[in-house]
């Protein structure tokens, strides 16, 4: 009757005292955490509401985004970065602050509430040890709430990124890249982010004739940088010689073709007008001409823009 998973030594004089279906040690913990989430729905509802508010606010702010982004791109690299990151930081801060407040209120009531409404008599009538109960209550502000906040922040920032990229792309301005999301700048998340970036770069590979600024920067800047981990994925791409003579499949060749066509018949094909224009624009960027010093890609954008505007 005593199954191996029943780790608790049975001291009962009665053999029937042993549970027929032994509950593993983690199950009461799991259900205790779940009941905390049932009881305190605000733990995830409040951050979600804030995220929704931030997203809708961001959605409204995308009305003037292309204009503002063009203005931002004329700034210095540090200011540029700060300006692009600001809404993402803002959303993360708001969600974190909400999670913190919710956590404080949770802690105030966690051990006292069930004594007050006497439901502690119900909880104590079940085979869950006091240790499990206290641990589950402690894990809410220490583990569960940070995880919820992190997940919601990542989701919100990803939505914001997609949203702004979609808007900017429709307006012919290159959007922010995933590494401009503050969350991806955490060293701890580097590996997971590499996966995400890989996925997103694949997505962008699939997008028709898009110019990846991240790639252009990586191609220009072959020297190892301090954040080389972040550029790991791009570095793999960047190992390809810039003339596209081998490797990297259709993407580079197509770019090359565009460039050739672009020089011979600039803007002649109506349905390719934009992409041709853009590839022509990129063509004017000195590819390997300059010194190989670290050059932020934003410089390139600015130079390219000023050239195209001139």
């Amino acid at each position: 009757m005593n199954t191996p998973s029943n780790a608790v030594p049975e001291t009962s004089v009665d053999a029937r005292g042993i549970a027929p279906a032994a509950v593993s040690a983690t199950r009461p913990m799991y259900w205790s955490v779940r009941r905390e989430l049932w009881e305190n729905r605000s733990l995830y509802v409040a951050p979600l509401i804030v995220a929704a508010v931030m997203l809708s606010g961001f959605l409204i702010s995308t009305i003037g985004l292309p204009h503002r982004r063009r203005a931002v791109l004329l700034l210095g690299p540090a200011q540029q970065r700060a300006a692009i990151e600001r809404p993402y930081d803002m959303a993360a801060m708001m969600i974190l602050a909400t999670a913190f407040i919710v956590g404080v209120f949770y802690c105030l009531d966690a051990l006292h509430g069930e004594r007050r409404d006497r439901s502690i008599l119900f909880w104590k009538s079940l085979p869950v040890s006091d240790l499990t109960t206290v641990l589950s209550k402690a894990s809410i502000p220490l583990v569960v709430l940070p995880l919820i906040a992190f997940a919601i922040i990542v989701a919100t920032q990803a939505d914001m990124l997609l949203l702004s990229n979609a808007v900017l792309r429709m307006n012919g301005v290159s959007g922010a890249t995933p590494e401009q999301m503050p969350v991806f700048q955490q060293d701890t998340g580097a590996l997971a982010c590499a996966d995400l970036r890989l996925a997103s770069s694949r997505l962008r590979l699939g997008a028709p004739r898009d110019v990846s600024l991240g790639r252009a920067a990586a191609v220009l800047d072959r020297r190892p940088r301090e954040d080389c981990a972040r550029h790991f994925v791009y570095r793999l791409d960047a190992e390809v010689p810039p003339d596209g003579s081998h490797g990297d499949g259709f993407r580079f060749r197509r770019g090359l073709e565009d460039r050739i066509h672009g020089t011979t018949h600039p803007g002649e094909v109506p349905e390719h007008a934009r992409s041709l224009g853009r590839s022509a624009l990129r063509h004017r960027v000195p590819r390997c001409g300059g010194p190989a010093a670290p050059r932020p890609r934003t410089d390139l954008i600015r130079r390219a823009l000023s050239q195209s505007l001139a």
Binding site: T11, G17, A19, V128, S129
Partner: peptide
């Protein structure tokens, strides 16, 4: 049921 209730409440409650 052969147990000390204060020390082994969680087992007793089975």
């Amino acid at each position: 049921l052969g147990r000390d209730p204060w020390a082994e409440r969680d087992l007793l409650m089975r």
